[in-house]
Design a protein around this nucleic acid. Structure first.
Lengths: 254, 254
DNA sequence: GGCTGATATTAATCCAGGTTAAAGCGTGAA
DNA sequence: TTCACGCTTTAACCTGGATTAATATCAGCC
């Protein structure tokens, strides 16, 4: 069974058996179970290891002086949390779990060595980093130009899509155990207004929220509400290949 | 005379003479003069080359369906515009100049080769990419949690700092020939409101705008208005070294 | 069962920033 | 010198989302 890391990276590339075995071994050697809402690495800290989400849901966030919190990205299985740490001296934000999660640790020294000496692994991490950048840029547009309604719709659609791309889900139903306060922290809105917008999305029959289970009943409608355009995810290599797994999973969604 | 690219990268690392000569040669071989407000590479396009700003001022932006524009980052001399292009198939945003600029082209194939085979160059580009990511994350916080006044102050302070770090300027005066509409596109505000906020910053004697020349008369005050924290720029390696050029230039500012 | 604390919902009020429009100002072309 | 065009400034008014607060719902626990 391949590690989530490999499943993620293979959206973009394909590894030799040797690389695959290496990455599988590295990401399974040291794993740790975290509870919900625990920090994995904090702003200002350095770590000799990099961390990768294996199961669960985590996020990048920052606490501001005024007590508010900004969630900058959600991390799903396969996502590296802090591949910057082997280069930069310290984290400029915190990584924390939202739900109980299993997180793998890989030595930064080993990572660095792989990135400098294993071209196909280096390329995969470059792609992942550049995709992250694309997601960040899209979020800037999101906050700068979309209204609250589209913003919430966008966030839900993006998480839905990434879970589909990764193969965590195969239909329209997924576990997304976040509070409305979390969504507010991620969108820059207030919890009260998030609630109003979720109400509207439900009223339009775009989504159903049943506790921690979310259902996107009308993906096309949600996508429209979100004003979603997909090229920033750079999944084209995956979806262009007619026989690709990821392509099949995302058919009609991007 | 070192290429701006090297000056930028040496904020983080130091190159061997051989690497330095190589980068100098590559970035001087093919240069092109652009006028103000010309596109260098557009969303959706692919290019065999990557581009680097040598002089002038450029930005990353995206035009949205509704006719608005979002500027996602300003690019100053030394900044690579599109190091993603040698990995990703197409740009997910446009790069364009704001002022007349000289842009260098470097073959993507050569870049790729350097990144996979020259560790110190690869590390420098990793650092640059990760710094860009930090800047993007900071902008998300900016838009999510700062009010219009801080946002404008922040933008000005960041550009000021990057120009100082790079050595384009040595005092408080810099050329920043953008219109208030550009600033609105960069902050997600309206031009009218940008104007109001600039008025306030002037009233507080934090800045003076004299045509295309901007003067930060009170860096500490502007920094405070911006609620600026600097760790996301990851200039610590540069500023920690007591004899560093960059350190000297940024003394008291970060 | 009833108690407690966290979350979701709803409503009433307020304000930062948007919208629209009109008036200044500067520069360069004719 | 005048005109035209693009940018800046100011003012009047409006609205999306914030704020505050009260109420409802639910899960875990005694």
């Amino acid at each position: 069974m391949d590690s989530p890391l490999i499943k993620k990276m293979e959206q973009f590339t394909s590894f030799s058996n040797e690389d695959r075995a290496l990455l599988n071994r590295l990401s399974s050697e040291r794993q740790k179970q975290y509870g919900a809402r625990e920090d994995i690495i904090r702003e200002g800290e350095h770590s000799p290891d990099i961390h990768i989400v294996m199961t669960g849901l985590a996020c990048r966030y920052k606490h501001l002086e005024d007590g508010t919190r900004q969630i900058m990205a959600f991390l799903v299985p396969g996502d590296p949390c802090d591949s910057e740490i082997f280069i930069l001296n310290q984290m400029d934000h915190t990584i924390g779990t939202l739900t109980p999660s299993i997180i793998a640790s890989v030595s930064g020294e080993i990572m660095k060595d792989l990135l400098l000496n294993r071209p196909s692994i280096a390329l995969a991490f470059w792609w992942s980093t550049l995709q992250d950048e694309g997601v960040l840029r899209e979020r800037i547009i999101d906050e700068g130009r979309r209204d609250a309604y589209s913003r919430i719709a966008f966030l839900i659609y993006e998480v839905f899509l990434r879970m589909r791309a990764f193969g965590i889900i195969d239909d329209q139903r997924f576990e997304f155990p976040v509070t409305q306060t979390d969504l507010a922290d991620a969108t820059g809105l207030t919890p009260v207004h998030v609630n109003r917008m979720l109400g509207r999305l439900r009223q339009q029959n775009l989504i159903i929220i049943d506790g921690k289970t979310w259902i996107v009943c009308d993906p096309a409608g949600l996508r429209k509400a979100a004003r979603f355009e997909s090229n920033y995810l750079h999944l084209d290599r995956a979806t262009d290949q007619p026989d690709s797994e990821t392509g099949r999973r995302l058919r009609g969604l991007i």
